[in-house]
């Protein structure tokens, strides 16, 4: 077989060089980053993946038709951002945001609603309950009430650390308390993992807590098969907290805090009192727009074991509103009600 090495080498080098430049042919060109394409891309993403059109009662096609005439390729970035933010805010969802390098949109109605009821007064808590000499372990601030017969734990954000060992330490430190109050009012959420840590430290028996589904198709009601979520077993060396637990919630309790509240509804060892939470029971999904801005919105939904969708708020077992008159006297009637529940349960 005749072989010309020079020719072969040249051919191979040319062939290799040609394939090396193939990616420019094979990869699609970047999408144009005009206001029009950016708007259409965002609208379509929400249309295909947002999980709560049924709960929010939003006609998303009508939103498109009302927004589109205001979008043109000559508009500035601030104007485009404002239009897209307004479009997203029709969803009335705290998990929906548009994020650019110069601004972050948020849903104002949610923030207004979170303050409704005024069920939490931080000055009242600081001056008359938590005090100034409270203890801090991770994201937990805590003290003893009524001569240490009640353990009061203020957990203001699920982004704050609350590991199993930290929760166990806090409960051990007040081992003589008859029960524990976990105050998650105005807790805007954070890490879902911390919900699991709390549930791990409560006496559970594999109860069904909720089911969750991911938005899977283009239709607004096209979800995956419900996935059951059960109470986690305690595989740690720490004993579950067997005494009564009362959890305080309000309209400022959002996202992971609503997951926490929904989970506790299935557990007999905990009582929810206060006001309905702000909801936020979908996991927010992030993405990017053709012009580089980021967005996020919920693409999962969470249903109670009975099939109820509490996206707009998890109701408490017992509704208790902060009494302004008593608050003026330095009394948080929600905490006092929680104390009486604990005393009653402990005496049984």
């Amino acid at each position: 077989m005749r072989h010309c090495p020079t020719l072969s080498s040249i051919l191979l080098v040319v062939l290799t060089a040609c394939t090396c430049s193939c990616e420019h042919l094979l990869m699609e060109d970047d999408m144009e980053a005009t206001p029009r394409t950016t708007f259409e891309y965002l609208w379509k993403k929400v249309d295909e993946q947002y999980a709560f059109f049924d709960v929010k009662q939003v006609d998303w096609k009508a939103v498109h038709d009302s927004t589109a005439p205001h979008i043109n390729d000559k508009m500035g970035k601030e104007a485009l951002f404002a239009r897209l933010s307004t479009m997203l805010n029709t969803l009335d969802d705290g998990h929906v945001n548009l994020i650019s390098s110069f601004d972050v949109s948020h849903c104002p109605s949610i923030y207004q609603r979170m303050q409704e009821g005024h069920n939490y007064n931080s000055d009242l808590i600081t001056e008359h309950y938590l005090g100034y000499d409270y203890h801090t372990t991770g994201g937990l601030r805590y003290t003893g009430l009524h001569h240490d017969s009640i353990l009061y734990v203020r957990y203001s954000s699920f982004s704050g650390s609350a590991s199993v060992s930290q929760i166990a330490y806090v409960t051990q430190r007040y081992a003589r308390a008859q029960g524990m109050i976990v105050d998650v009012r105005q807790n805007g959420g954070g890490e879902v993992q911390n919900v699991w840590n709390w549930l791990t430290m409560l006496p559970t028996h594999g109860e069904l807590l909720y089911t969750t589904q991911i938005k899977r198709g283009r239709d607004h009601d096209d979800f995956s098969t419900p996935q059951a979520v059960h109470a986690p077993p305690n595989n740690t060396t720490y004993k579950p907290y067997a005494k009564p637990v009362v959890v305080l919630i309000d309209r400022g309790s959002f996202s992971a805090t609503s997951f926490f509240a929904l989970s506790l509804r299935s557990l007999s060892s905990a009582v929810l009192i206060g006001d309905t939470t702000a909801g936020g029971l979908g996991l927010p999904n992030g993405g990017q727009l053709p012009n580089g801005w980021y967005y996020r919105f919920s693409i999962t939904r969470t249903l109670s074991p009975e099939g109820e969708n509490f996206e707009n708020g998890v109701p408490p077992d017992e509704v208790v509103h902060l009494d302004a008159t008593q608050a003026a006297l330095g009394i948080d009637n929600i905490i006092e009600r929680a104390c009486s529940i604990i005393y009653n349960k402990a005496s049984l």
Binding site: Q193, W196, I214, L283, N285, T300
Partner: peptide, 13 residues
Amino acid sequence: PGYAFIDNYTQEN
């Protein structure tokens, strides 16, 4: 990943 690009981790175990 599925249609909705997410890891719906709800239970670590």
